[in-house]
């Protein structure tokens, strides 16, 4: 009996140490290895994407775009006119294969971005969407009760501020251009970019903090 039990323990021990991935992890690995062998996908493209999106992009590029728009009126005009062309000129095209439309917050208008279908998002400038952006609750509530969603994120809008909700698709993705806060006159683009939050570019943040 004792022998049997120690065999079991040894088996469990081996199983733990084999670090067997979860079923979905095995399925992804299997699918990728088959598609690579069939010549349908280049593993370097997959690896490069993973490296870039897990380590490098984040929302920093978006913050640079916003800072440049605040600092450079000609760039802002170009960005609002054709977001895709403006970010391409900065070398920020990529996964967001559709068009980018930048929508501007003003004293009278607040913009909020959602993807009601899945989670379309301007990846090439904002990285991977936050966990809440991918939830069914956000996809539904952003449209049905945007003010309540905003309040949950600490954005309490006066009744006379219009809320515009933009539904991203694979063809057309949106980014919010937040308002430049007071007290930032003379700041350079890097200083400005540092105060731009990811949520401000999705619309769940509004009044950016300067210190």
């Amino acid at each position: 009996m004792a022998k049997h039990r120690s065999d079991d323990i040894a088996k469990i021990h081996r199983a733990l140490h084999s670090h067997l991935p979860s079923e979905p992890a095995l399925r992804v690995k299997a699918l990728e290895s088959l598609l690579v062998e069939k010549g349908m996908v280049d593993p370097r493209t997959v690896d490069a994407w993973v490296e870039i999106y897990t380590e490098k992009i984040g929302p920093k590029r978006g913050a640079q775009v916003v800072a440049k728009a605040w600092a450079d009126p000609a760039f802002k005009t170009a960005l609002l006119d054709d977001g895709t062309a403006a970010i391409t000129a900065l070398g920020y095209e990529g996964w967001a294969t559709g068009h980018l439309e930048v929508v501007e917050n003003t004293a009278a208008v607040h913009n909020l971005v959602v993807c009601t279908l899945c989670s379309c998002y301007p990846h090439s400038i904002l990285g991977i969407p936050p966990a809440w952006y991918k939830l069914a609750a956000y996809r539904a509530r952003a449209v049905r009760e945007p003010r309540a969603v905003l309040a949950e994120f600490g954005v309490n809008l006066a009744d006379d501020i219009e809320v515009r909700v933009w539904d991203s698709t694979s063809e057309l993705r949106y980014m919010v251009l937040p308002q430049r806060p007071a007290g930032t006159a003379g700041w350079d683009e890097n200083q400005l970019a540092a105060i731009v939050t990811r949520n401000a570019m999705i619309g769940t943040d509004r009044d950016l903090r300067t210190g």
Binding site: S22, A25, V28, V50, T54, I128, W132
Partner: peptide, 19 residues
């Protein structure tokens, strides 16, 4: 919350992108 809970999730999106 992190955008990915496990590495396969990033690998999956990378694979979708490559395809």
């Amino acid at each position: 919350a992190p955008a990915f809970d496990e590495p396969w999730q990033a690998q999956l999106l990378g694979l979708a992108y490559a395809l």
